Simulated scan of single mutants.
Amino acid sequence: MQENTRIASQFYASPRGRLAATHLRRHLSSFWPDMPGGRVLGVGYTVPYLSLWDNDVTTCVSARLDALVTRPAPAEGPAGRECVVAEDRFPFDDLFFDRVVMVHALEVTDARRALLRQVWKVMKDDARLLLVVPNRSGMWAHADTSPFGQGTPFSYRQITRALASACLRVERHENALYFPPVGPTGGRRWSGLLERAGTRMLPYLGGVCVIEAVKDAYAPVGNAAAPLRMPALRLRRADAFSRSGGGVAGENAPRHGGGPALRT
C-alpha cells in the first residue's frame, strides 16, 4: 500500500487521499470561488481539483507531467481534455489559458525553470496561477507514503524566489493539510477540526503551501548588471602652447632647451 500511495492517482483512491483532496479543495475554492469562464489548465496531477471549476462556460484541461508520480493514471478526465506533457514542451498555443492550476508538479521535476517558462507562455497576460507545493516545514513533506512526500519541498521564500525568476508575482498564500500523513485519519470531522485549529494556531506548519500568482509585466529580465562601456579616450601630445590669445599656436612657444623656466 505504501508503494501504491506514492503514485498520485492511487493516493487519491485511498481514504487518506480522498480526505486530503476534500480539505485541499476547500482551500482552492476559497482562492477562486467564482470562475468567470474561459479555459483552465491543470498541470501535474489535478484531476481531483479541476471539477471545482468545470462547468458550461469554463473548459478544464488536465496536463499530467511525464513523471513517475503523475504519469500512471486511468482515464479520469473528460474525453479529449487530458494529455501527458513534457516539462519543456506544452502542446498549447501561447496566451491560451485564463487560469492555471499546478498540483504535484514543481516538486517532482528537475526542470523547474523550463516548466515555469512553459506555464508563463500559455498564460494570458491577465491570467492567474494557483500552485500547490509541499511545505518544507510541514509533516507531509517528510512522509514518503504520499505524493506530497516525493521530490523537493519548498519554503515560502524559496517558492517565491522561483516564481519571481519566472516573472510570476505572488499575491496571496496560505497553508493547508494539518492532519497527520500517517496513522489513523480520524475521519472527516476530526481532520476538519485539525485543519481549522492549525490554520489559526500554527499557520506556517501546514503540509502544503497554496500560492496564487500573476504575470509580472515589470519584472527585470535578469539579475546581472549590464556592462558599462566607455568610449575610448585618445590623448594627443601638445607640441606647443601659445603665450598670446590671438597668436597661432607655436609662434612664441618655447623651444626645448631655451626660454625662461616656468615658475610655480
Rank of each mutant, 00 (worst) to 15 (best):
L262M: 14
S146D: 00
P184Q: 10
M102T: 01
N55K: 08
G37E: 07
T109F: 09
A86Q: 08
L115Y: 08
T22F: 05
F179N: 00
V108K: 03
L41Y: 00
A232D: 05
G222M: 14
D110K: 02
V182Y: 08
A143I: 06
P72C: 08
M35D: 05
P180V: 07
A63M: 03
L233H: 14
A176R: 02
R229D: 11
Y218D: 15
A219V: 13
R243T: 10
V40T: 03
P227I: 13
S191M: 03
V133W: 01
N4I: 04
A224D: 10
R255Q: 12
L193N: 11
F241K: 10
L228M: 15
T264H: 13
G186W: 04
Y178D: 01
D239S: 12
R112K: 15
P48V: 01
S62C: 09
E82Q: 14
I159K: 01
K124Q: 08
F31Y: 11
V133G: 00
A224M: 13
C167T: 12
E82M: 10
L202R: 05
A164F: 06
R26D: 11
G258E: 14
A226Y: 09
D110S: 11
G183E: 04
C167E: 12
L129F: 05
D88N: 11
R39K: 06
R255C: 11
T185I: 06
Y45S: 01
C83E: 12
L193I: 01
P203N: 05
A141K: 03
F90T: 02
R26P: 00
P203Y: 03
E76F: 13
R229Q: 14
G44T: 02
M201W: 14
A111D: 11
G42N: 06
L95M: 06
P147T: 06
A21T: 01
N252V: 04
T152W: 03
R26F: 02
M139Q: 12
M201C: 13
H23D: 02
G44S: 09
G42L: 04
G17F: 05
Y218S: 15
E195F: 01
R136A: 10
R188F: 13
A86M: 10
D216L: 12
G222N: 14
F179V: 00
R234S: 08
S30A: 14
P254H: 03
T160P: 05
G258T: 15
A213V: 02
R189F: 13
S51K: 13
A8D: 08
L168Q: 02
F31A: 01
P36D: 11
E82I: 08
P33G: 00
T58S: 05
V108M: 08
A217S: 15
A143M: 10
N223Q: 15
G246K: 08
N135I: 08
G247N: 14
A67F: 08
R6S: 07
E82H: 12
L202C: 09
G207C: 09
R189P: 06
S242C: 15
A75L: 09
A73V: 02
K121E: 13
M35S: 10
G257P: 00
T70W: 06
D126T: 11
V132H: 01
G151F: 01
A219C: 15
L205H: 13
H27A: 12
L235P: 05
R64Q: 13
E212W: 04
F90V: 02
A86H: 05
V221I: 15
L205F: 07
P203I: 06
I211W: 00
R81I: 07
